[in-house]
Design a binder for these strands. Sequence first.
DNA 1: CCGTTTGCATTGCAGTTGCAACGTAAACTG
DNA 2: CAGTTTACGTTGCAACTGCAATGCAAACGG
Lengths: 217, 217
Amino acid sequence: MPKRVDHQERRKLIADALMRVAAERGLEAVSLRHVAAEAEVSSGMVQHYFRTKDEMMTFALSVVRERGEARVTRAVAALGEDPSPRTLLRTMLAELLPLDEARRADGRVALAFLAYTAVRPAVAAGLHRETAELLAFIAGQIRAAQAAGAAETRVDPDRAAVALLAVMEGLGVYLLGGHYPPETALGALDAQLDLLLGPAPPAQRGRAVPPRRPSKP
Amino acid sequence: MPKRVDHQERRKLIADALMRVAAERGLEAVSLRHVAAEAEVSSGMVQHYFRTKDEMMTFALSVVRERGEARVTRAVAALGEDPSPRTLLRTMLAELLPLDEARRADGRVALAFLAYTAVRPAVAAGLHRETAELLAFIAGQIRAAQAAGAAETRVDPDRAAVALLAVMEGLGVYLLGGHYPPETALGALDAQLDLLLGPAPPAQRGRAVPPRRPSKP
DNA sequence: CCGTTTGCATTGCAGTTGCAACGTAAACTG
DNA sequence: CAGTTTACGTTGCAACTGCAATGCAAACGG
């Protein structure tokens, strides 16, 4: 039986189990044995693929990141050929909000890792690059909208991008905390886009994110 | 010696130690013994004042909330008699951002508790009330600014309040993660206020929060 | 002045933790 | 077919965990 196993695949299997544990009971409940049990493998196997717990955590963090990226790319791809900046931004950001249970689970894990990395700065390096790229992209879209005359040109695209991404992150945090219902968050997101890009064309207004067919990533 | 002790004071002493541990090494490192050691008391004493660890955590969470509130009220009080809505909002929100090391430490603890409560919904009840109050207050200020003609009346105050608070929370999270420097966060906050309330009067622009004298709360 | 209550310190315990060590069986290499 | 490597499974261990139990001295109530 041995030797013919995909190393990366096993690691993802374990990381997935870790995320399930973390989503349900928090990162504090993540132990070698719990993860192993959740993945239905022996704890020896977990040790075989991750020499230390920290290695496992770091890998899981990268998986979380990639999941988010995959979500966004899929949602954006579903928009078809070059969508308007507004549609693009709204789709991206709404996709990153924990609006259904699947995304809530991911969100809880992400939030846990956020707290985790806040105390272990060394692990956070990868996140910085991603944030920087996202910010650059968002700023680009805002600039495009301004050039097309759709947006007020008084706002600095870079600052607006930082604010817009922060809105999304903050809404996500409050949603996870159950401070308000999803509609409130979506309303605030749309209001923010209105502020930045001017009122939306009526067809767009309040349109839901396209339905996502069930998948087992 | 016994009998003449202020119960509440001891509990705060312990909670403070807990927050120091959590700020440095995360909530996972918070154990009865660690907290006791940090507070320089016996672990028996900790058990005397908190019958279970959960009771201690819940109390610490309430202390975190109160600290934040105290910070804001102090900063706002320093503004003097009825300041403009814009000044008020900017002062409040900037005070809640982790811009110096003291507030970063508090922020790390708050973030850790956010992840903590996301998995234990029962504990989060108190937070909801506070958020709701804050939102109502912010919305009120925005309404006031609109009535005074300072702000564009096209934005819905309630939605704008949700977005504004989310901006602050999101900026805080990214700051704690070290994704960008404090100036970027402050820039985005000001940009957001510009969007909501119109450009700031020149005297206000970029003015720093009044210096906070060192204190041992 | 004596019992009760309060405020702590110490000890002990069962359970859990990360991790090292060892064992083993299957595939690949020569 | 011998030997090495890969892929695990099992066991064990020292450290740590929350918590119960016990002890004890000081203040207070009677």
